[in-house]
Write a protein that binds this DNA or RNA. Structure first.
Lengths: 404, 404
DNA sequence: GTGTAGGCATTTGGCCGACAA
DNA sequence: TTGTCGGCCAAATGCCTACAC
């Protein structure tokens, strides 16, 4: 297979006329951050309408009040689909990356008995670095200080016989727009700096201290530059074209119609506004629900810290059961109620899904991201919520999960 | 009635905490432009799903391809509703104004036999002016040249005994944010200028030559400042949270559900991205369909020119019939096929609706905007499309409308 | 190794009247 | 009446080194 780990429409950007620019998959993921993963094209996935609605709710912070009750749709909490296509995109204004996923519901009869194997980890062919901008980096007073290792690994090599050594860098952003930077190596002690061209980039991308910038040099030597705005001031100023209620209904009706007619539909996945992925690989899902999880169990989970790096928080499972027992009964979506060891920056995430957590046993050095921990001795034990478990929420006492 | 012509939630902005800011109705309309009108709250209106879908299509120029056929909804082309509420809003980033309209479907039994009277024209209590920005206005080199009449009618009076006469203006924008400008009267010959504070406003609002700025002084003396970006470079950078198809389905399913259950629903009306209003007063609708319209008839129609002012184009009706005979049979939406006398800036608008046109007989000096012309002698003649009319499209020959 | 501050040349910002359209 | 320009000074931008942490 010549396709990369995340199979997207890998169009070598030849005809990049105007608005449509095929984003390189590796670059898209560099911009999305280390926590974001996308399923492989043509693989089986599980789609969670609940999670999709969460994304919609997050994108319109206020005015989420619904005027009238939403009509009932005969929708299961999760839908097995084949991922028939992915289009990687970026917001023209904010450079935020997002993806359109084309999903085709899979008939029960086509459901494979054994899960497909997870794809092999990708082999790195290109070098990249990501730096959180300091006050000096974003100040008009100076340029950008390139970390030494980053410059040596990622930028084209300088001619050190020059005095001072310098060159012009040309890097394309996520829209294919070229940015030019003067790269110079000077000062005592010596350091790599981007000077001319840097400040216009900062102001154009509206970067402030705390935001991140990333450079990526591909196989062909092409240099790319991306930005990642800090999490906190994510001013989601997307105008509502339709009302919130309409959007909710649209998501549900689309899925319901697609399931009934077995028709392809598409969803938009916004990593930045989405708290949890709502399209996950089927094998990941199977692995997760096969693992034994019980109240009182300790776990770890990956998060993105304020400086756009990855870190792990640990916590304890305090309950197992439905988030919304009326609308989505017997759903695995955020079926785990948890308590965190440290108080987290934002008080959210009181509930997580099975496939989001890692067992405390498994070591932190895992080849592919988000691998799931499991107890080998207790296979086949499902964590499907039962009445007993729901009742256990009231008492915080650790309690083993059990099936009827 | 103490309410203004366009009845909106006229909240005197006392508690304008953070994101929610009640926009003054008159100011909203000044920002929306002279062509935009909104129905009165609690009046009967006609909602056109077709038009609503047009707005959705316009807001996402590309990627409007639909993956799978949209499910059939048992929806009539137009829905009689009571406008139970309007909330006037503005985009936090672009200052574009838009409105949320709460609609409650009206039962056939409640349908009034006589149309409600159109409201009396509003009495102007405040002064406003709108100026298209020149190169000098937007240049960093200078300030803003206030037209003489505008300054005298609209701005607080200067103390002309000063040398030079000057004052500080404080104007709130559509979000309630205050902007300060130094207003000075100087030069030979004398002129009104805004100097200090103007350039930050220009860069903050991303104004370029060709855009418009408007000032409005209300009854209470409060000064307001709004912007209107030029039509041409309307970069609609609203991120799609859901797919285009989902949005389409959402609009249709919401309306269908609301009609069936007689439940209130809400729509968002974006004047800037919407080619035609899709919620129109019921009396306007009645008047329009009662008027006699025939192929070959001459008419005028109001448009917004590039410099944000109103102008009229004239044309000839070349056909009468359905836009989409399959999906929306027997619809009045854009039932008139027209040909314009002059080639218009953008080649669109080949089809218009009955209530959008003015008869050539009626004089251009009309008290309320968008009054409809009609032939008094030919009342009760409907322009409802028939098979004969549809066939008449092929031949461009003038042909009188007739009913079976 | 790298963030920040001081030094200083150069550019840009921004207020003014003059002049013409 | 008002758009644009040249003049002029103030403020900022931006490249450099020095010095800490």
């Amino acid at each position: 297979m010549a396709s990369s780990y995340v199979g997207s429409k890998l169009v070598d950007e030849k005809g990049e006329g105007g608005s449509m620019f095929a984003i390189n998959s590796e670059f898209w993921h560099a911009c999305a951050g280390p926590l974001i993963s996308l399923p492989v094209v043509n693989s089986l996935v599980v789609y969670w309408p609940q999670g999709h609605l969460e994304q919609v709710a997050n994108s319109t912070p206020q005015a989420s009040s619904v005027l009238s009750p939403i009509p009932q749709y005969d929708l299961p909490p999760h839908i097995l689909c084949r991922l028939t296509g992915i289009t990687l995109m970026a917001h023209p204004d904010t450079d935020k990356v997002y993806a359109q996923m084309d999903l085709t519901p899979v008939r029960e009869s086509e459901k494979p008995s054994v899960s497909e194997e997870p794809p092999p980890p990708a082999k790195r062919k290109s070098y990249s670095f990501c730096k959180t901008l300091t006050a000096s980096d974003t100040s008009t007073h100076g340029g950008f200080s390139v970390p030494r290792r980053a410059a040596e690994e990622c930028l084209p090599e300088l001619d050190y016989t020059m005095n001072p050594p310098c060159q012009e860098l040309v890097a394309k952003d996520v829209h294919g727009v070229e940015w030019k930077f003067r790269h110079i190596y000077r000062g005592h002690p010596r350091r790599h700096l981007l000077t001319t061209g840097w400040s216009v980039f900062v102001s154009s991308k509206r970067l402030v201290a705390g935001d991140s910038v990333l450079f990526l040099r591909g196989e062909n030597g092409q240099l790319r530059v991306g930005v990642r705005h800090a999490l906190k001031q994510q001013q989601d100023s997307q105008s509502m074209v339709v009302s919130n209620q309409s959007t909710y209904i649209g998501v549900l009706a689309t899925a319901a119609h697609a399931v009934t007619e077995k028709l392809r539909f598409s969803v938009i996945y916004h990593p930045s506004t989405c708290t949890s992925e709502f399209v996950i690989p089927y094998h990941k899902y199977l692995k997760a629900i096969k693992s034994s999880v019980s109240v009182g169990m300790r776990f770890k989970m990956r998060f993105e810290s304020e400086d756009s790096t990855e870190r792990r928080y640990s916590g304890t499972i305090t309950g197992i059961g439905d988030v919304d027992a009326v609308r989505w009964p017997n759903s695995y979506w955020r079926s785990l109620k948890v308590e965190w060891d440290e108080s987290m920056a934002s008080g959210r995430h009181e509930r997580v899904s099975l496939w989001e957590i890692e067992s405390f046993n498994s070591v932190a050095t895992l080849p592919p991201p988000t691998s799931l921990g499991q107890y080998p001795s207790q296979k086949r034990r499902l964590a499907r919520p039962t009445l007993a478990m729901k009742l256990s929420w009231t008492s915080k006492l650790p309690r083993l999960s059990s099936m009827p």
